[in-house]
Amino acid sequence: MNPARSAARRPLTAAVLLALAVAPFLLGPYAVGTLSRILVFALLALSVNLLTGLTGLPTLGQSAYFGVGAYTAAIVARGLTDIGILQLLIAAGVAALVALPTGWLAVRARGVVFLMLTLAIGEIVYSAAVNWKTLTNGTDGLAAIPPVVPLPGMSALELDGLVYFYVLGVFVLLFATVSRLGSTPFALALRGIRDNESRMKAIGYPTSRYALTVYCGAGALAGVAGALWVSVQRFVSPGDAGFEIAALALLAVVIGGSGSMWGACAGAALIWLTRDYLGNLEAVAGRGPLLLGLLFVTAVYILPRGLAGIRLPRKPSRRSTA
């Protein structure tokens, strides 16, 4: 990222973090719960951005690993432990294990074929969640999930505000980790695959291996998001692994700006607020999908580079002034 642009965004980043930190003290329980769900959805959008924006692999299958992580965390919470860190680690591990064989198949294709393969993977996981009733309880879902305990020795998080701070802490940690990834040689190789894979192969890069690695990493990140979803909702159903979640996550990346991490998060927030807040207003009640369609068309025409394409004002340098 351009250092000047990065410096211009630091005050905005600090303001957003401050607003997120004080939000539970200013908002009601419903709004705080909505913010928690937005943060979870933003993590899912980040996992999509790792594939679509960073590597050039448009995906409709991240809801599969989101669902795997959610069901794993729910089963662990009900039968093994209520410790949040263990739920996150186990959910990430299981989601990555599921992503390994499915990703091995998917990354052999590119473009529309890859998109269709990931869509098929998502539908397979959704069907498994519906039909594997002994494990998932079918369409009734898994309920009666105990409240999460972040770390051993801590109390269970019963209040919405406390759950929100738990989700916020995990979100900030993972966002910072993914941000650091963006400046590594591995990320540069992924951008090379996105821009000119043939040239990367010609100079000796094992592009399929790189793509499979980031695919498994994105699956693990989606699994963590699924585990956090269970901590917020304390319920999971097959719909959490369905096509709608996958489509909304991809739409968030497109609206936010493909390749931009903060853009993916902003797009996730905009979509969630449009669907769950504006879509429930009396004047447009029941027309949430219509609003999302209008939002997408407007963003494509007005902001072809997404929200990340908005130029922030910055202080002119001495050289440009001269």
Rank of each mutant, 00 (worst) to 15 (best):
229 W>G: 01
163 V>W: 06
297 V>Q: 04
143 A>Y: 15
171 F>D: 09
176 A>K: 11
163 V>E: 03
15 A>S: 10
39 L>M: 03
50 L>A: 02
51 L>H: 02
194 R>L: 05
94 V>R: 04
201 K>A: 13
207 T>A: 08
6 S>Q: 14
83 I>A: 14
55 T>H: 02
266 A>D: 11
206 P>S: 05
5 R>W: 08
201 K>M: 13
169 G>F: 10
171 F>H: 06
258 S>Q: 05
203 I>Q: 00
63 S>R: 05
270 L>D: 09
101 P>E: 10
14 A>P: 01
47 S>V: 01
284 V>C: 14
106 A>Q: 05
201 K>F: 01
188 L>P: 00
169 G>N: 12
232 V>I: 15
26 L>C: 10
97 L>E: 02
259 G>V: 09
300 V>W: 10
101 P>D: 01
43 L>A: 08
215 Y>M: 00
171 F>Q: 07
141 G>T: 03
83 I>C: 09
269 A>C: 08
230 V>T: 14
28 G>M: 03
307 L>K: 05
6 S>F: 12
26 L>I: 06
76 V>E: 11
300 V>I: 07
118 T>A: 06
306 G>F: 06
117 L>A: 01
242 G>I: 11
279 G>A: 14
310 I>N: 12
191 R>Y: 04
116 M>E: 01
214 V>W: 12
162 L>E: 07
208 S>L: 02
56 G>I: 02
49 N>W: 09
59 T>S: 01
149 V>A: 14
274 T>G: 09
24 P>I: 03
187 A>R: 04
171 F>T: 11
10 R>A: 15
311 R>N: 12
172 V>M: 08
212 L>R: 00
319 R>I: 05
13 T>C: 11
278 L>S: 11
143 A>K: 15
2 N>V: 11
227 A>R: 13
204 G>R: 00
225 A>Y: 00
202 A>D: 07
259 G>K: 08
86 L>G: 13
235 F>S: 12
99 A>T: 01
177 T>Q: 12
187 A>P: 00
118 T>G: 11
124 I>R: 02
220 A>H: 01
239 G>D: 13
277 Y>W: 15
206 P>I: 02
203 I>W: 02
132 W>L: 15
321 T>C: 09
140 D>F: 14
66 F>I: 04
142 L>D: 10
66 F>S: 03
225 A>G: 11
141 G>I: 10
17 L>E: 07
265 C>E: 04
168 L>D: 00
106 A>Y: 07
240 D>S: 15
233 Q>P: 07
134 T>D: 14
84 G>C: 10
68 V>K: 02
319 R>E: 04
266 A>F: 13
223 G>D: 06
283 A>K: 09
140 D>I: 12
148 V>H: 12
254 V>A: 09
223 G>S: 03
102 T>A: 00
178 V>C: 09
125 V>I: 06
147 P>F: 12
253 V>A: 00
293 G>R: 05
